[in-house]
Design a binder for these strands. Structure first.
Lengths: 141, 141
DNA sequence: TTTCACATTAGAAATATTCTAAGGTCCTCA
DNA sequence: TGAGGACCTTAGAATATTTCTAATGTGAAA
């Protein structure tokens, strides 16, 4: 996602394209891990040491609300974030806790009646097991 | 899950069945919401006002590690917990954030190659949308 | 140039979770 | 029966994460 696209995203959502917001979006766009707010702040702060932790938190909240960034549903102490690029599922390692992207595929919708009167918007998969670093070699098949 | 079953679970996992652990397990077994650690502590503390917040946190961590309790993968500030009863999926409301159980059904495994060399243990679904309280009435179909 | 709405800042405050040292509990063993 | 030891709890301190607040900054529009 290049600079112009980031700007269009932000302004299309009614948010100003400030240097601080741009830095958060740019970092998330090229980060294929799922960083915590502290990691995002550290990265943004290295680029501009005057930037404030509160601004990074404020911007993350605004970007999530605007639908430009998504908070990843993982366990653990700190929230983790993901750029809203291509849709994908997640794989969470039982041992090291690492969260990895898995390419999207549509999941069959549940039988009618299962969700009752709820309105379904999205159906995300969370895979759990051992990642390639933690899986014993001989177990692969 | 009755008292004897709770005791068997705990001792089968190498953990003593202390009154504090029993209280956490009993609360989660009959709680069909997904309480935070603070909510669990409040409930346990109402039953025994001497019980300590650190004990509840310690016990939750131990119970999760022993596989008797699961931390629910949700966004937001505080961790939420679930008794490891029948397997189920979760529905998270976009508007109110409520987390509800959805009956389990097996999800088709991803195409071979999608997960590479990872070892899959479980595949959980997270549904998102509007819960029955937040969905407009006319939208139901 | 002024105004105004939105944004940032720095540090305080609140919330959530973990740490620590001391003491408690309960079972085993002599 | 009492000692010992492993595990557990406690209370408050400490740390980590997130939000709040009042003051200031920014930039586009008038």
């Amino acid at each position: 996602m290049n600079a112009a696209a980031i700007r269009r995203c932000l302004e299309g959502s009614g948010l100003r394209c400030t240097p601080q917001r741009y830095a958060v979006m740019a970092f998330l766009a090229e980060c294929n891990r799922h960083p915590t707010a502290a990691e995002i702040f550290d990265a943004v702060n290295r680029m501009d040491p005057r930037s404030s932790r509160a601004t990074t938190y404020n911007n993350l909240r605004d970007l999530v609300q605007a639908g430009l960034v998504r908070e990843v549903a993982v366990e653990g102490r700190a929230a983790r974030f993901d750029a809203k690029g291509m849709r994908h599922h997640h794989f969470i390692c039982d041992r090291c806790g690492n969260v990895e992207d898995v390419e999207w595929y549509d999941v069959p919708r549940p039988a009618s009646g299962t969700l009752g009167k709820r309105i379904l918007r999205e159906c995300e998969l969370i895979f759990r097991g051992l990642c390639t670093k933690c899986a014993p070699r001989h177990a692969w098949r």
